[in-house]
Amino acid sequence: MQSETTHKKTGKNGGRILRVLTYMLLAFWGLVVLFPFYWMVLTSIKSYGAYNSEYVPKLYTLSPTLQNYADAFTAVPLARYFANTVFFTAATTALMLAVTVLAAYAFARLNFRGKNFLFVLFLSLMMIPNELVVITNYVTITNLDLRNTFSGLILPSVTSVFYIYLLKENFEQVPDQLYYAAKVDGTSDLKYLIKVMLPLCRPTIVTITILKAIECWNSYVWPRLATDDPQYYLVSNGIQSIRENGFGRENIPAMMAAVVVISLPLIVLFLFFRKMIMAGVSRGGTKG
């Protein structure tokens, strides 16, 4: 450990105190992060009666129950919200990938007139905040009669200029020789893109897929504007409507069961793809 050798001035004792303080700080923040998760799982397995009789909340429960989970799926259309979100996430991400891959390939590999100008134009679009364009999109979708449809939900959520940029950078690292060799063999551009470029750039593809999926799963603002029919609610809107008029305001345990169900998929995804997600976010994440 490098720092073991550094405390000539602080001395061995000072170093140990510092180490203890360091771990205490980290443990404290770990507790702050994890406690809400603990509380949500804990509350979700307390029975309705038990929860409401605790004037002083208990930090544990001796009689866990899964009844709340059953309630969450029967009393409110949680399964539908869930299915909607899965479909929305899959469709949006797939469309985004198709659009992004084609555009990135054009910018990285093909030559055409106006390419540089168009690329600068694309880059400048990265600075446009979503709040500015959402107003017109809402009006457009309303006028096209696309509110409360999946097209209305999905189409405005597809574009991601930043991912085009990210993928283009990656495509450009693929050696030109491969392209010329493929051309000599008579391979078409599309075939080259699918058979050579995509496998070579798999990590970036996976990264942007996961980042987009997270974004879709958690999106709230656009789905709220584009839908007011619970048939088309996504989980974020679902949880909000559950909160406002779902189980009746007092059934907090069932509400927490719904929250657990909604949070679980992304947490599982994260635990599986931890390295990839964290690397991806540090390259291209924007939240905070």
Binding site: G30, P36, W39, T43, E54, S263
Partner: peptide, 28 residues
Amino acid sequence: TVFFLPYVTNTLAVGLVFMILFKRTAYT
């Protein structure tokens, strides 16, 4: 890993947990 968890959670959903932790009702 632990510190990164809030990034992958649904803001609306976990916000509800915060609300319950902080809210004062007639029952508790």
